[in-house]
Simulated assay, not measured.
Amino acid sequence: MQANESAPVKAWVFLISLACIWGASFLLMKKGLLAFRPDQVAAIRMASAGFVLLPFILHRLRQVRRHHWPLLFSVGAIGSLIPAFLFAFAQTELPSGVTGVLNTFTPLATLIIGVTLYQQVVRPQQWLGILLGLVGTILLITASATGEFSFNSYGLLIIVATICYGLNLNVIKHKIHDLGALTITGVSLALMAPPSLIYLFVATPVTTQVQDIQFFWSLSAILTLGIVGTAAALILLNTIVKLTDTTFTSSVTYLIPIIALILGVIDGEPFFLQHAIGLCAILMGVWIANKRARKSPTQ
């Protein structure tokens, strides 16, 4: 696959579907928070995602060796569990659209961690991309209705979450690249499901919240977030990679924040000029950082 133009129509349909699923996940978190605490939203999300993927990975467990288990546990904790809690708490004070845009910082966080911890070589244009991404992030977490800078510290929770994603992606790349994507994701999430469920029923008053008028609506939103936003999205992602390539698949990064912002505005969230500028800066930064260097005619 040499160019995105040659991708089959089916791949484009799957790509747009994936962007809609992931873009809507931030609004689903917001709806889950109507009846549940942030930690409950995260716990239900993780438990539902882990258990629904279990049938898909049972026959793959024989591929997992003893040395893989600690790494898979860390992938589940750092790459899924901790970010789930961070996102849920952040969205108590951040619009879902802004959260979706801030999540786009993940590729840049991955690059920064690759440089600092794994001695990854970085081209000058990638540093420019990182700088633009940081500028866009600052604009997003300081936006206000008056146009003045008003720092929202909850935005930092999303940045920490993207750093977790970056650490996770580097661990997968450098430590457990011998396992398939579905095995890594499915097993790591399955490892997080039991402790999440135990936490939900032991450490939170979830059984007393059933009478809340928003309970079942919010529960449906969180289950959709866990099952569709994780299990179905993972299947779509792997299908797109098989139909095309990773370059085409990575273009979903540019669609997710747009979907998240559109859904947020439809739901009545404010959208400021500073948000638009921040979005453009982050997307431009990601594009520049991931753009392949052109070869000279002599190469």
Rank of each mutant, 00 (worst) to 15 (best):
G97A: 05
A90M: 09
L34M: 14
Q40T: 07
S150K: 07
W127Y: 15
L179D: 11
P83T: 05
L134N: 01
P257M: 11
G229P: 12
I159C: 02
W217F: 14
F73D: 01
F151M: 05
A88K: 01
L236F: 14
A49L: 08
N4P: 09
A90C: 09
I112V: 15
A24T: 13
L128W: 08
V98W: 10
G136E: 08
F87A: 00
Y254H: 09
V101Y: 07
L219H: 04
G285E: 10
I258M: 12
S6I: 00
N168C: 14
P297L: 06
G133C: 06
V52P: 03
L81S: 15
W22F: 03
I141Y: 09
L117V: 09
R294G: 11
L236S: 01
L108D: 12
C20H: 02
I16A: 14
S144W: 06
P205Q: 05
L200N: 08
I259H: 05
N4F: 12
N168S: 15
L263M: 13
V202W: 15
A24F: 10
T244P: 01
S48N: 06
P8K: 03
L33A: 08
K242D: 13
L273A: 14
I16Q: 03
D212R: 11
V13A: 14
S74K: 01
I141L: 05
L108I: 15
I158P: 09
R60S: 14
V13N: 02
L157M: 15
T208Y: 06
G180E: 15
V75G: 06
T247H: 13
V210K: 04
A49W: 10
F272I: 01
S296C: 03
T247F: 07
T207I: 10
M46G: 03
Q2I: 09
F87M: 04
H275Y: 03
Y199I: 03
V75H: 10
I21M: 12
S250G: 08
K173R: 13
I57P: 11
V115A: 15
M29Q: 14
A145H: 11
L134R: 00
V121S: 13
V9Q: 07
G268R: 05
F215D: 12
V41G: 05
I288A: 00
G278V: 00
Q91H: 04
V286D: 11
S251N: 15
L117S: 12
G133W: 04
I240W: 02
G79K: 04
V286F: 09
I282G: 07
K173T: 09
I57Y: 07
A276T: 12
I266W: 13
P194S: 08
F272K: 00
A281Y: 02
A24E: 05
A109K: 00
G147I: 01
L71F: 11
A161L: 06
I130Y: 04
L197G: 09
T183K: 06
V228W: 06
E269L: 02
S80C: 08
K295I: 00
I82W: 08
